[in-house]
């Protein structure tokens, strides 16, 4: 492959991958930004949704209803997890630490249950849409569609937080929680909605990932690692920062997998993370108060 073709391959596939993981990263950014919970189990919503589709397909359900059920489940699980565990920690000292470890516990439970129930790699058979020729490689149309879906969902989220009362309330809570409560906004409700929305977005990410690649029990952990990197690099409060960082990280990942070797993928990601943080402790995009 000539250099330009390789570059195009990397950029195109990197952007597509970046769009997918952006959904998970934005989910985390919401939960961390609005509620202050560094959700180590963020990626689990993706894995659970992906495997739910696989399971339902195996039971004879067709694709569209399976997806609907899986997404509904992601949403509900988000709310349930929040009510049963995170909500019990509100007002405690060390909230950051406690919620981090509780979500770690949730992640442990989730990916082990998935491992016990499903065992290994599975793929979600997506619609066969053929492929188009781009430069000197074939690009599956399904990939393009998946990326488009991701973009649409992100756009919808943006509109949601700009024009609906609940969306505005979420931004308000992340900006100034007491101010929000003074206006009659119920923190518990917003908390549930945030987890539900975060779960939903990540669930979509998982289903698309399962169609383009595969789902496996520890997918959640990998996606969480990407999401944390992205949120930190892009800045917690910044929607555009997180999107930009997702696309950037997507390209870095694809570049490493293509040019260097796929074992080095995580090394490259962590290196990026490490460098960005050491040089600029607050991340690149957002203007976050680094000292607590």
């Amino acid at each position: 492959m000539a250099a330009i073709d390789t570059a195009a391959f990397i950029v195109v596939n990197g952007l597509i991958f970046g769009a997918l993981i952006a959904l998970t990263a934005v989910g985390l950014s919401l939960i961390f930004g609005v509620l202050g919970v560094p959700n180590f189990a963020q990626g689990e919503f993706a894995a659970v949704a992906g495997f739910t589709v696989v399971g339902l397909l195996g039971a004879g359900v067709s694709l569209a209803p399976a997806i609907v059920v899986a997404l509904g489940l992601s949403c509900v699980l988000g709310v349930v997890a929040e009510r049963l565990t995170i909500a019990k920690l509100y007002g405690r000292d060390n909230f950051l630490l406690l919620s981090f470890f509780v979500t770690f516990g949730l992640s442990l439970v989730s990916h082990n249950v998935l491992r016990i129930a499903f065992g290994g790699f599975e793929q979600i058979p997506g619609p066969q849409l053929g492929s188009i020729a781009l430069f000197d490689f074939e690009l599956s149309v399904l990939r393009l569609v998946a990326a488009l879906i991701a973009v649409v969902m992100l756009g919808a989220l943006h509109l949601f937080t700009k024009y609906t009362y609940v969306g505005l309330a979420m931004r308000a809570v992340s900006d100034d929680r007491q101010g929000a409560e003074m206006l009659g906004i119920d923190y518990d409700r917003i908390s549930m909605v945030t987890f539900g929305v975060g779960g939903l977005l990540t669930g979509v990410s998982g289903i698309l990932y399962g169609m383009l690649f595969t789902v496996y029990p520890t997918l959640g952990v990998s996606l969480t690692a990407f999401a944390f990197t992205i949120v930190v690099v892009g800045g917690v409060g910044s929607f555009t920062g997180v999107i930009a960082a997702s696309l950037g990280i997507g390209i870095v990942e694809t570049f490493t997998a293509t040019v260097v070797g796929s074992e080095y993928r995580f090394f490259a990601i962590f290196l990026v993370l490490f460098l960005v943080l050491t040089l600029k402790p607050g991340g690149i995009g957002g203007d976050v108060d680094v000292g607590h």
Binding site: Y165, L168, A169, R171, A172, D175, D176, G179, M182, L183
Partner: peptide, 15 residues
């Protein structure tokens, strides 16, 4: 005052 500093005047009022 507890204003929402990252939101506009109009958004603050709407809330």
């Amino acid at each position: 005052r507890n204003l929402f500093r990252e939101m506009t005047v109009a958004e603050n009022l709407k809330l």
